[in-house]
Structure formats: C-alpha cells, structure tokens
Nucleic acid binder design. Sequence first.
DNA 1: CATGAATGAGCCTTCATTCAT
DNA 2: AATGAATGAAGGCTCATTCAT
Lengths: 209, 209, 209, 209
Amino acid sequence: MHIYGRCTINKRRRPNDKYQRILEAAIKVFAEQGFFQSTIAQIAREAGVADGTIYLYFKNKDDILVQFFNYKTKQVFDGFRAEVNKGDNAVDKLRNLVRRHLAEFQRDRNMAILYQSETHQSFRMAEKQIKEMSNMYLDIVAEIVEQGQQEGMIRKNLYLSLVKRFILGAVDEVINTWIHSGGHYDLVSMADPLVDLFIEGVGNRGQST
Amino acid sequence: MHIYGRCTINKRRRPNDKYQRILEAAIKVFAEQGFFQSTIAQIAREAGVADGTIYLYFKNKDDILVQFFNYKTKQVFDGFRAEVNKGDNAVDKLRNLVRRHLAEFQRDRNMAILYQSETHQSFRMAEKQIKEMSNMYLDIVAEIVEQGQQEGMIRKNLYLSLVKRFILGAVDEVINTWIHSGGHYDLVSMADPLVDLFIEGVGNRGQST
Amino acid sequence: MHIYGRCTINKRRRPNDKYQRILEAAIKVFAEQGFFQSTIAQIAREAGVADGTIYLYFKNKDDILVQFFNYKTKQVFDGFRAEVNKGDNAVDKLRNLVRRHLAEFQRDRNMAILYQSETHQSFRMAEKQIKEMSNMYLDIVAEIVEQGQQEGMIRKNLYLSLVKRFILGAVDEVINTWIHSGGHYDLVSMADPLVDLFIEGVGNRGQST
Amino acid sequence: MHIYGRCTINKRRRPNDKYQRILEAAIKVFAEQGFFQSTIAQIAREAGVADGTIYLYFKNKDDILVQFFNYKTKQVFDGFRAEVNKGDNAVDKLRNLVRRHLAEFQRDRNMAILYQSETHQSFRMAEKQIKEMSNMYLDIVAEIVEQGQQEGMIRKNLYLSLVKRFILGAVDEVINTWIHSGGHYDLVSMADPLVDLFIEGVGNRGQST
DNA sequence: CATGAATGAGCCTTCATTCAT
DNA sequence: AATGAATGAAGGCTCATTCAT
C-alpha cells in the first residue's frame, strides 16, 4: 500500500513535469524553426524524452500548439486584467497593460516569437483560442478607452474598434521589431513613450515649435 | 500576312503569361493554406500547368516565395514613394501613404495575406527582401515625420524609431484584422481615422468632455 | 535472472539482423538491375521492411553501396591475406590467393556481380574504399612476386606494377565471364590452370611439340 | 534517279555530321558521369543542339549507347583483325593485337572509359553488341593461339577458352588502371612487356637467378 | 529538319504516428 | 509510463520524351 503511495505522489508530479518540459521544449523549437519545420524528434530531444512519450501528453503535433495557446498564453493574458485593475485611471490602466504586455513577452522570448508567428498566419491551427485571446485583449482596451472617455481623459469622437487595433497593432509591431533585431534591448522601456503616442499622437497642438 | 501578326503577339506574351500565372496561383494557394502546407501539385493545378513546368520558371518552392517578394511586393512598395510625393505637407503625405497601403492590400487580398504571414515568421524565407522592403517603408515614414517636424505639424519630442513602428504596426494590424474577418468591408475608409489617431492620439486635450 | 539472458540475446541480435537483411537485399537488387536502376522500394520489398526503415540503418541510397564495400567486400579481402600466408612458397601463395578469390566470388554471386560493376565505373561512388581494397590486393600480389624472385621461382626481369595488373586483370575477367555466362560452372577449378598460365605463360620453351 | 542522287548526297552528309556530334558528345558525357547520371540535356548542350534534336537521330537514350557499340566500338574492333593479319607469326600477331588495342583506347579515352564501364555491368544495355564484339576479340585470340600451336611457338596443353580470357582480362585491366590513374602515361608502351608476360609467364625456367 | 517548352511518371527522402516491449 | 524501432503516406524535384511552332 505505502509502496503505491510513493508511486502516486511521483505520478502526479512527474508527469506534470514532463508535460511542462515537453511544452517548453516545443515552444523553443517552434520559435527557432517555425511550426512546420519543427519535428517531433527535435522536440523530444530538446525535452529529453522519447518521441513516443510526447503522444502520452499531447494528442498530436497540432495539439501542442493548441495547448500552447490554451495554457501558456492564456495564463499570460489572464494576468493582464489583474494588472490593468491596479491602475487608477484609464491612462494608468493603459500604461499598465502595455507595460505588462511588453514585460511578459520580453520575459519569455520564445513565447513571444511563437505567438507573433502563429497569430499572423492565415490558416491558424488554434483559431478559436487565438480569437478568444485577441478578443479578451481588445475588450480590455475597449473598457479602458470607454472608462477614459467617461473620465474625460480620452476624447469621445473615436472609432472604437479602430482604436483597439491601433493600440494592439502598435504594441505588436514593437515586439516584432524587438524579436527580429535579436531581442537585445529593453522592451519595457518602450511602454511609456508608446502610451504617450497613443494619448498624444504625433501632432503638434499649437505649441510653438 | 496579317495572320502572322497575331501569332507574333501570342508568342511574345506566352512565356511571361506562364510565369505570372504560376506566381499568382502560388500566392493564392500560399494565402489559403500557408506556405508549408501548400504543395507544388496544388499550385500547378491552380495555374493549369504540369508540376514540372513550375521548375522551368522557379528554382524551387522557396524561390516562388522569394520571387513574390522580389517582384510582386517590391512593385507595390515602390509605388508608395510616388504616392507619398503627391502630398503637400507631412500629414497629407502620411495620409497618402496609409491610404495607398490599405488600397493596395485591399486590391490584392491574397498578396495581403501572404505578406502578413511571411513577414511575421521567425525564420523568414526571404529575410533579405523583407528587411529591405520594411526598411524602405520605415524610411518613408521617417522622412515624413521629419518633414512634419520642420513644418511644425508634428511635435519634436519624439522617439523617431518608435514612431515608425507605431505607425507601421497600427496599419499592419488593421490589415490583419480585415483579413481575419473575411475582408468584407472597405479597408481604405480606415485610412483617415487612422491617420487622425496618429496625429491627434486618443487623448482629450483639455476641451470640455 | 536467466530469463533476462534470453531477452538480451534477442535484443542484441535484432537490429543487426535488419541491417544485414537490408544490405543483402540491396546487394541482390543492385546486382540484378544495377545501382541506378534499383529503387529503395525494391530493396525494401526484398528485405521485407518498409521504405522508411532503410533510412534507420543507412544514410541514403549511396550509403548502402559504401557500406557494401566497407563491410561485405572488406571482409572478403581481409580473408585473402590469411589464406595467402598458408602457402609455403610464392607459387603456392599465388595459387591460394587466386583460389580463394574465385571461391569467395563464386560463393556470393551477387557480391561478385556488384563488385565487378562498381569497380569498373568511371565515376565510382565508393572510390576511396575501392582504391584501398584494390591496392591491398595488388600489394599482396607484389609481395608474392618479390618473394618468388628471392626464392628463384619467379624471374627477376619483370615490370612489377604490370605483373600485378596482369594477374588481377586475368582473374577479374575469368570472374566476369563466369558472371555473364550465368554462373553455372565451377569457378574455383579455373584457379590452377590460371596460375599455371601466370607462371608458365603460353609460350613453348623449346620442348618438342 | 539522279534526282534522288543529289538529295541523297546532301542528306547523307549533313545529318551525319550532327549524328556524329551528338554521339561524340554523348560518349564524352557518359564517360564523365556514367550513363544513368547523364542527362539528355547535358548531351544536347555538349553537342550544341536542342534536346529534341537528339531524338531525330536516336530512338531514345538507350539507343545512344547501342549506337556507340554498333558504330564507334565496332569500327575499332574491326580494325583489329586487319592489324593482326599484318603479323607473320602468332606472337607477332598477338603483339599487333595488343598494341592496336591499347593504341585505340589511348587515342580515344572517352571511348575507353565508356567501354570499360558498360561491358562490366550486370545488366547491359547493349548486351547483344557487347557479346558479339567480345566474341570477335576472343575468336581472334583463339585463332592466334591455334596458329601459334601449329607453328610450335605456343604450347599445346592449354585450356583455350581460359587463355582467351586470360589475355583479354590482362589487357582490360591495364587499360582500366590507366583510366583510373588519369591516363597520363603511355599505354602503348605496355604492349611488349605484356605480350612477353603472356608468352613467357612470370616463372623462372631453370636459368640461374 | 530543328527547337525547347511542356509534360507527368517516378523516385528518394522525411516525418508524424503507432505499438510491442 | 516510457521507449524508439518501424511504418508508409506524402511531397519536392528530376528528366526522358513529345510536339506545336
């Protein structure tokens, strides 16, 4: 009995470990070579397991990508809302969102790379998950903007759904550039200037030059 | 006599025709299924030629993608500069750029899809071409911004390289959303509101709410 | 305990088995159709494995040929030296060499065919291995001849490097003829008459006719 | 009648030129890369004609090889007989044969390479032609040997069919070595020492060392 | 006669997935 | 649970051959 107890403890921990290891390994390999150019064998080697073992934790290759969005990315995006709520006003909240977004993607570069790649495909493996996450993000932005409008910090004559994309797109591209430049500079420091651009735009409002 | 005239016309057009037909077919197939999930056989069928014929015009599968950037996309981007120059001031120029950008990508949706996909990969087939084109775009934006600063329409305390990404990213995301929503609305109509956001931001500058 | 012993035996034999089976199958197919006209599918069918399995044991099609020379042929040629050493004098040694040569090639007709084919190509897949083996053979012959010269059984006014080719060539051709005639007569019985020709030549030395 | 005469002259010369050019080009390409690794396109380029033109003169790729044996090689071998007949006695004739053999193969190295390759294949494209030519050669040798036996220069207790292979094989191997060494030395100078070996063998006939 | 663009059958090789151990 | 050998379908690419010009 106590013999099996030991096993059970191991079983609940170990497999989970292995799930994590495989997922992380896959993210790394996918990030480096792209999903279709990565092989199960490469992921297995990176994870230090046998090829077949992967199929004990994932239905198939596609499923790894789905799990990436379901588990890894979801977690990150869920953190956004909490972070946003720490802000007092709309601008603070937006700043928190952008800062956290950049921070998380900087913290896990492989995730950042894979996320950027897969969300910009035409035929997306995890369409549902991506749409969901993207919508969550856009909803947060929408809420912030609407709150800001009520607070008087954000103007009202805005095409809201465009504003959402405008903000997400800018952040995305900042990340994308960071990725393709090798990721050697600090991404978070872009947050404040970026939010400033969102709020103020580039226009000169009548001040002297 | 005039009989032969007809023939000559045909003869000079044919080879070019086939290159074009294959390239267009490939762009369509790539756009629909992604580069790696597309097969030479599919492209050939779409183009109405035999599989082997493709290799008379392209070195290999990868080369088709490179040619896409070298030929199709390059042409589009080259048109941007001319369009920009038609503008009188910086804001006009920016508006022209964004409008043309959206118009071209709307005009050729498959190109838009493929361009968006491939430029956001981590391992990019046509890295050189993409970098070149991206830089050209960013240079144009930079020139516009600098001109705007001299004209007094754009404020001077700006992190220029961030502004470039900010603008490109927003446009990119607008296109991306349009693509994933099925491309059933007018993309060009987003140009003016978008440029407005670039210039004015979303902030409320002290007017009454 | 002894239970595992059985398993170990099986486990250690299996992989080797498949390597052998594929190699033998390949030799047979190559012998029958020639290297370039043979397909991986044919070899796989002959070996009773799937096409892909071949690539678990061989890098590619060319590698099978290289392994043939590295493994199969090398082994045969290594046996020559031992056989030669059993002879007392030079003529005995030569006789042993030729006899063993013919015997081995007769014993494995497919090997004989493949060896003859590939060593006479202009562009040889396994150039290095072939050169090495050929040189080993010629060296053996040279040693025999030199010993024979010291023993006084072989005359001294000889162009040694020509003698080597003279002997190897004659043996080769005897094998070649045997192959192309269907291999239905005894090859080894040619050894003694052949060595007699090497030693005595065809000339009539003044004896009465 | 005379009408056709004119045409015949033209027709028989011009096409013949091209036929020759293609055949020579093919021999060169085959010699360099082997039959199966050579392409019609390579041959066409080497001959300075279009791919399709080759099919006006040859039925297919295989046919080029057949024509090589039918035309090129046949011609060379036919010359052997005439050369042999110039000899007075058997040994002279043998010397003439070997000398001419080596001379012809030295004169056209590509022919030599191709001939050696193809005659040693197991599955031979031009089996009939090769057998025929080989037999012609062996017949000549047989005649010489028999004549020599009558003349008393060649001993009678010989296994004739073995002697034939013995001689052909030695010459073949001398050529083969010459080919694989780069063909930079004089092949014909091997003729006399080689014939000496045929006649005298390597044995020491009782003379003091 | 000559051309060379077009064809499409065929082959090598990869790799996701399975399953006996 | 874990393994990794085995599978075989699928795809990129080549090239002998044809045929309209």
